[in-house]
Amino acid sequence: MRLLAKLVVILVALGATGLGLLSLRQQRYEVSNAISKAHNEIVDQERTQWRLRAEIASRCDPADIRGYAERLDLDLTPMQQAGEEAARASTETASPDGALGSRSPAGAATAKQATTTPAARKSPTKSPSKSSKGSTRHAR
């Protein structure tokens, strides 16, 4: 009886070990499968990203943006020149009577431009590079 019990214990132990190993192996495969799926998903997403980037790029080339602006009748007049804005400000500051109307001819021209440009009125402190970046259509 004792021998039988030992045999049973050994068999159960072997079986349990086998099951445990199989279970571990299965888990490893499942993890590998999940990783593989994730890998394929990443590759797919990456390719979709390439395609979308190309599509975005093809839709925002300068000629297209100009075309959209024309279709929407947007007045993309260039914003005022930063250098002149600073010059005008200094002229105004240096004016002995402090009157806002006393401007140099250059300043007057800039002021006229600034008042006729809604974008310029909204953001008079924008940097020249930023302001010029947005102006793809130059009105003459």
């Binding site: 250098g83 002149e84 021209a109 940097s127 010029s132 130059h138």
Partner: peptide, 23 residues
Amino acid sequence: TDEALQYLGVPYDQDPAKREKPA
């Protein structure tokens, strides 16, 4: 030149009298 310099944010340097005239 007009479009490139304006795009690059370079201030105008033409005489104001000439600047008033249309291109």
